[in-house]
Design a protein around this nucleic acid. Structure first.
Length: 509
RNA sequence: GCUCCUGUGGUGUAGUCCGGUUAAGCAUACUGCCCUCUCAAGGCAGUGAUCCCGGGUUCAAAUCCCGGCGGGAGCACCA
């Protein structure tokens, strides 16, 4: 049989074998495809609780939410999940918006879970009417003990009427801690969240938006499910620690006969030695160990920005991490690398000397020198006034012996005539190849500034007391002309962001 | 402790659903060379993974099955 014949026979008898396999995915760009996503119909949501300043973790979530909406021509909703007045504050609603603006995450709609509180009550009513929930007046300790021991609560035995009555009382007679409404789950479920979880509780604290108008507040589990459903969310992303709550989420919507979004989880993003939790950050701020939420050692968006990290570097970085459930302690150096590439072409080059040693140069041909602000990009030039006295890095100067020739970058060649005191003589401007090149600062008009060098806040569990190094340095007067927030590359040192007139923050090498 | 999730080079991942065409792609880190008045950026090349371990299925397994082990999370009137 010839090859062709064989082929024909196979085609006749076993067409399956020749069927094109669904081609393997080609190199994918960005996020993996979403299950059940229809172009134009995807709705995602970013649901932060306004209880703190946004950080890199929020960035990851928001960017993923936005990217997917964008990928499918859908919509992104920003929804403040403000159902616990004890934790939330007005300033945080604003801070989160500021953070999102900086990240250039654009949402199509903003809302608050608290906007829907009446509707949430109505849904709770439905649950109560269907006997899918009950009001429990047990003490907190009793409740958690029963949970642990898988024992049903005596309140769950009550009549519909009792629940109705108690529910009404939650709005009048009962005070905080007196009663909660509980989902009728399964006290012997292996999944502890199904052991009659809380749906509503009384909180007397004023709500940042609604004041004291309401005191019965839904729990997260009840609110997200309802909200996601009525908001038209098709794909709801949350971090892995919520995974066990999926069962509850879906069952609530089933019982209420509401549309069910698809919940998908991803791993949390954190950096080594850079805690994100308010529990550990707050004491640090209170004790003055860090200056505030924008201390450059912190992973808050404000801090990252202040440190000189760009918005688009964060986005690239987040996307490079992939959409997985594997625990990741992300490599900060990767973020830095993305950032460096963004910042490099727009950073002015300046000289800065950190461990200054003086040297006197004779026979300079001119009292000024003009230098380009960037080696390849056209970013203008600056003119520097010179005297005879210069600062060099002491480690550069230490290597010099009389007779040596060095290149003052951008200025010219200098022959060393004396070691101490260090002195040299200008010997021309031809650019030799093997001559050591050093950066320098003219002492005339030299600017004294401080450079903050952040490093890892925690080493293991230990607070790293040396995590913020401050050095006093000399730089060129041109520094004064730069706008605050500008990124600079100090030649042979690294990238820094101008924080103020007197201070720059080291971004990375 | 119980339950759930997870495990690919130093690091982060792609590929795992639908087993072969990849003894594994990319990024980052590292090394070397080129370029360069920077220890930056750019260009090129390279080092580096028996795909956690042990069994099994199969002509064939990172990919399927079973059992271990490691890591993380949940067990709140927080989200």
């Amino acid at each position: 049989m010839s090859q062709d014949q064989i082929k024909r026979q196979i085609q006749d008898k076993f067409p399956d074998l020749l069927a094109e396999k669904p081609k393997k995915q080609e190199e994918r760009e960005g996020l993996p495809p979403l299950e059940g996503a229809e172009h134009g119909k995807v709705v995602t949501r970013f649901p932060p609780e306004p209880n703190g300043y946004p950080h890199i973790g929020h960035a990851k979530a928001a960017i993923i939410d936005e990217e997917y909406a964008k990928m499918y021509g859908g919509k992104l909703i920003l929804r403040f999940d403000d159902t616990n007045p004890e934790a939330e504050r007005l300033e945080y609603y604003a801070a989160i918006k500021v953070g999102l603006d900086w990240l250039e995450v654009k949402y199509d709609r903003v809302k608050n879970t608290s906007d829907d509180i009446e509707l949430l009550y109505k849904k709770c009513q439905e649950m109560l009417d269907g006997n899918y929930a009950y009001v429990c007046t047990c003490k907190q300790e009793t409740i958690s003990a029963n949970r642990r021991e898988m024992k049903p609560c005596k309140c769950s035995m009550g009549e519909l009427e009792q629940n109705k009555d108690r529910w009404d009382k939650m709005f009048s007679k009962f005070g905080q801690g007196d009663a909660i409404v509980r989902f009728r789950g399964n006290m012997s479920s292996e999944n502890t969240v199904m052991r009659d979880p809380v749906m509503f509780r009384i909180i007397e604290t004023k709500h940042p938006l609604l004041g004291d108008k309401y005191r019965v507040w839904p729990s997260y589990d009840f609110a997200v499910a309802i909200e996601d459903s009525i908001d038209g969310v098709t794909h709801a992303f949350r971090t892995k620690e919520y995974e066990l709550r999926n069962e509850l989420y879906y069952i609530i919507l089933d019982l209420l006969k509401m549309r069910k979004p698809k919940v998908i989880e991803f791993s949390r993003l954190g950096f080594e030695g850079m805690p994100v939790s308010k529990r550990v950050l707050r004491p640090l701020i209170e004790e003055g160990k860090v200056s505030g939420y924008d201390d450059p050692r912190l992973p808050t968006l404000e801090a990252l920005k202040r440190r000189g990290i760009r918005q688009d570097a964060i986005r690239k970085f987040v996307l490079s991490l992939g959409f997985t459930k594997a625990d990741t302690l992300a490599p900060f150096e990767t973020l830095e690398s993305f950032n460096r590439k963004i910042v490099d072409p727009e950073s002015i080059r300046l000289h800065m000397v950190k461990n200054p040693a003086s040297i006197k140069i004779r026979d300079l041909p001119s009292g000024t020198i003009t230098m380009p602000n960037h080696p390849t990009k056209d970013m203008g030039k600056r003119t520097i006034e010179l005297g005879e006295e210069f600062y060099l890095e002491s480690e550069d100067i230490e290597k010099l012996k009389p007779g040596d020739a060095i290149r003052f970058m951008g200025l010219g060649n200098v022959k060393i005539t004396s070691q101490s005191p260090a002195e040299g003589q200008y010997v021309g401007d031809e650019l030799g190849t093997n001559i050591p090149k050093v950066h320098w600062v003219a002492q005339k008009n030299a600017q004294k500034i401080k450079v903050l060098i952040p490093s890892q806040l925690f080493i293991g569990e230990e607070f790293n007391a040396a995590s913020l190094q401050e050095i006093n340095v000399f730089t060129e007067p041109h520094y004064n002309e730069l706008k605050e927030g500008k990124e600079i590359q100090f030649v042979r040192f690294g990238y820094c962001r101008k924080d103020s007139m007197l201070q720059a923050i080291y971004t990375h090498k």
